[in-house]
Amino acid sequence: MHHRIMAALGMNDVKAAAAAGVALALAVVMGACGGAGGAGTASTAATRPAAPATRTTARAAVPAPTHLRVVARRTLPAPVQLPAVAATGGGNALAIGGLDAADASVADVVRIAPGAPKLVGHLPAAAHDLGAAALRGKAYVFGGGTAAGPIATIAAVGPGGTVRPAGHLPVAMSDTSAATIGGTAYVIGGYTTTTPLRSVLAIVPGHAARDVATLPHPLRYAAVAAVGRRLLIAGGTDGVHARREVLSVDPARHRVTVIARLPAPLGHAAGAVLGGTFFVLGGRGDGLTHQRATIWAVDPAGRRPRRAGRLPLALSDLGAVTVGDHVLVAGGRDASGRVHDELWTLAAR
């Protein structure tokens, strides 16, 4: 099924304080097939009064990172593509499900941080193309594709690999992306086996899912993360062709805006946030062999995306998540069809 359907930030606004030369940098980071967290929008920040001087020594603002570079390589327990990844807090991160080297769904729950990657649990059923986001110290996974088709299950996965049922989506779906703002997870787009979806669903554990925004086009396999109170969505596929748009979603106002365009259509990429910058890693165009190694940095203010480094390999269908001041990149597929078992650690430079 995977290859037939694969064709599938808000920024913490940085406002210089006017008094006594004191600069205050606001940045909230979240990573997810993966996920991220939030603060206010530009229009809100612009109305705030200047902060009063509280110190006599000026403190320089921390610049947003402009490039990522590989600083470490480790090995996953097995090659995997399309893993759902999420950081659960305390330096912990998980890679869940995916497809193996034979394009078969897997049920593995792998702890990818801290320490060496380790298999720590299993899903009730093997699944790929799940969305994942962190909530309440757990990784929540949404839907996914199985041998019997998409499922509507929501599951909570603890840092130790324990899996518990946590509800249901309104419809069975795979090919989703997800991110977190505050105590709410958002599931973006997806596919029902017949229909690519345009929905943005808000999910709070213990409550029914709510549809909070409608995308301008159907979307699968998009790179997604959150900064501030907005979601940033880059590329993806509408079910036929890869897309170039970078979308900003304000779930509270039910508003979706195109804020930029990628230099070329790009689907099956991964997204992560570091220092208030949304990074889009790898991906491919419409062809199965059009993998990319480029890392793009997307400014939440909507400036043109810029090159921000390269992966060691051209990969699509990889997972990425922010843990502390690093981005972890797990697995992926190259242009020859080989599925990889590398776990790359990237840092800003």
Score class of each variant (00 low, 15 high):
R69G: 13
P196C: 05
H2V: 09
V141T: 12
V141Q: 10
R229Q: 12
A308N: 07
G324R: 05
A320G: 06
G37F: 12
A61E: 15
T192W: 00
G37N: 15
H254G: 12
S316F: 02
G285H: 09
A213F: 00
L99T: 06
H217E: 14
M173F: 00
T345C: 13
A101Q: 13
A27R: 14
Q291V: 11
T56Y: 08
A16Q: 13
N12V: 13
S248I: 02
R304P: 00
S43Q: 13
L119T: 13
A178S: 11
P49A: 13
A301V: 02
P218K: 01
V62Y: 00
A213Q: 06
L232D: 12
A185Q: 04
P251W: 07
D299T: 00
V109W: 01
S248G: 14
L68N: 07
V85F: 06
V106W: 05
S316Q: 11
G183S: 14
G89I: 04
A308W: 01
L281P: 01
E245H: 06
A127C: 04
P150C: 08
P63G: 00
K118H: 12
P49K: 11
A125T: 12
A84N: 03
T192N: 11
T180A: 15
G167E: 09
P216H: 08
A36R: 12
V249I: 06
A39N: 12
V258Y: 01
D100K: 05
A242C: 09
L313C: 08
G97L: 03
